[in-house]
Design a protein around this nucleic acid. Sequence first.
DNA 1: AACATGTAGGGAAAAGCCCGGG
DNA 2: CCCCGGGCTTTTCCCTACATGT
Length: 368
Amino acid sequence: MFRAFVNERLAAAAGEIRALFEKTRAECEEELRRSQDQNRRKQRLLEKILSPRVVLVRARVQTPPTRIKEEPEEEELPMETEADGENHHHQVQSRSTKVSAQNKSAPETSATKPYSCEACEIKFADLSTLTRHRRTHTREKPYHCLTCQKTFALKSYLDTHRRTHTGEKPYSCEVCEIKFADLSTLTRHRRTHTGEKPYHCLTCQKTFAQKSNLDTHRRTHTGEKPYSCEVCEMKFAELSTLTTHRRTHTGDKPYHCLTCQKTFARKSALDDHRRTHTKEKPYSCQVCEKKFRHRSALTTHRRTHTGEKPYSCEVCEIKFADLSTLTKHKTTHTGEKPYSCLVCKKRFCESKQEPINITKMVKLKNAG
DNA sequence: AACATGTAGGGAAAAGCCCGGG
DNA sequence: CCCCGGGCTTTTCCCTACATGT
Ligand SMILES: [Zn+2]
Ligand SMILES: [Zn+2]
Ligand SMILES: [Zn+2]
Ligand SMILES: [Zn+2]
Ligand SMILES: [Zn+2]
């Protein structure tokens, strides 16, 4: 039936994507490679351009900026069209100050970096670095993982990768004892303790510890939704949201309650559900100490203290604190006798063109 | 009238894994 | 070899609106 159709549709879409992907895989990787190379070059250019500027402010005359040769006009990749110009506004440069300080005293010249790559013109201070760098062009990856057949350009990459199979985590946080397989991840994790958040959103002033999280956040301002569902064409700002959305089509419910065998499409739903077995009530009202199993129950409960009534009937404009109460109330407007007196419950057939009666009823209600 | 339970999307925090260069 | 910074991807968690039933 419908479920089957949807699954078929999804499978077909997946097949199309796979076919397309296989066909253009090489080109895509090539393109990705090129854009990465290009970005690296741009990054270097940026460093060169930005750091001399620091010098220029103070010593404009004495250090004319080394002329940077413009690259032979290449097709710009979409992502860098406008990003480059404003990039450095979105993030503070706390992490690369050392580099620019160095550059100030020893600008990159062929004297300090005599080894330049034949493929991309980048210069290096020593030959070993250049040799290592060349592999980014040749794609030479001599180190193989025997477990999963992946290949790596450097032994250190393979060493790190192998830990994904062994589970070894040699780096542990001094503060919270959590262990990591990768030193970079630990370094980044430490920021959660220091509270360092170097990336700022210019639109709302929010700050972020990771750049990618800022990038994602900015979509909430731009409205960009790059991920779209293959079945219903709904669009999403994040892949994870699309992933859970897809389950509404497939009916996939990967989370199982071990107590009653019920299944759920998302973990939070299972967590909520589990509390119906454990009788746990983690949400408590600050006013009356009453406890609730679900957050939404607490939210509606709080209105009994505040008097807030967000739900109003479009017909008679009476307000309610609880949606189900409003829904029930609305039925008094349906049928042949859509209007009922709120005091005596008698029903009337008066049309909407009887505002006087209605306001009277409302007034009566509000007074009582 | 108040609460219980579940569905769904939005958003953020943090970690996983990998790469390049000093 | 170590270390550092950074990139894209994935996981995890929390929030809220809303529907439906008690
Ligand atoms: Zn492997
Ligand atoms: Zn820690
Ligand atoms: Zn923002
Ligand atoms: Zn869909
Ligand atoms: Zn209360």
